[in-house]
């Protein structure tokens, strides 16, 4: 090979290799949505899906699944937050509604965000929420209290070995984050 041929061959190979490097860098970021898809398929982490649309199906009256509600408040969040029912038994396929209660006990306006998580993780595939406060952030004025509805149904496809679902909501104070973000856009 002559020197120019050699250089050209090198250049071609380098371009390809740099292409792989760039591609893999982007792939790292693509892992973020891919991970969500992966979670949705496998139920890793008990991440729940977004808003579901309820289609009335035949309710399986033979089966009962216990759905338990747990609430948790993260540090730095001066709210009261609890589920008004501890747990209910539901039939797969039927639409249910439960209510949650929140009160801002501080003397400031605060924006809260609840993050849901379901255990066992596989159960997340079968618990569908048609209406949930966790889809949005809540802003409560000082001392304000609110009752928040959550509508859901358990998919009738749910495997027989899942008899118990625990739906946990963790409440975070996102006031600073929201204000920083809106400050940035101003």
């Amino acid at each position: 090979m002559s020197e120019t041929e050699q250089n050209q061959a090198n250049k071609k190979l380098i371009v390809r290799l740099v292409g792989i490097v760039g591609g893999m860098f982007l792939f790292a970021f693509a892992l973020v949505p891919l991970y969500d898809v992966f979670c949705e398929i496998t139920g890793i982490n008990g991440k729940t899906r977004g808003k579901a649309i309820y289609q009335s199906v035949e309710v399986n009256k033979q089966r009962e699944v216990t759905v338990e509600f747990i609430t948790d408040i993260n540090r730095g969040m001066p709210w009261e937050f609890k589920s008004l029912v501890k747990s209910i038994k539901v039939h797969p396929g039927e639409l249910n509604e439960v209510k949650f209660y929140a009160k801002n006990t501080s003397r400031k306006d605060i924006i809260g965000q609840t993050v849901p998580s379901i255990s066992p993780g596989e159960g997340a595939l079968y618990l569908n929420k048609t209406e949930c406060f966790c889809f949005d952030q809540q802003r409560l004025a000082a001392g304000e209290e609110v009752e928040m509805p959550m509508k859901f149904y358990v998919d009738s496809e749910i495997p027989d070995d899942i008899t118990h679902l625990t739906l946990s909501y963790k409440l975070f104070n996102v006031t600073d984050a929201v204000e920083v973000a809106s400050g940035a856009t101003k």
Binding site: I20, V21, G22, G23, M24, F25, L26, F27, A28, F29, L31
Partner: peptide, 8 residues
Amino acid sequence: MVMPVLAG
């Protein structure tokens, strides 16, 4: 293949 992922 993997150093760019670490960078990400």
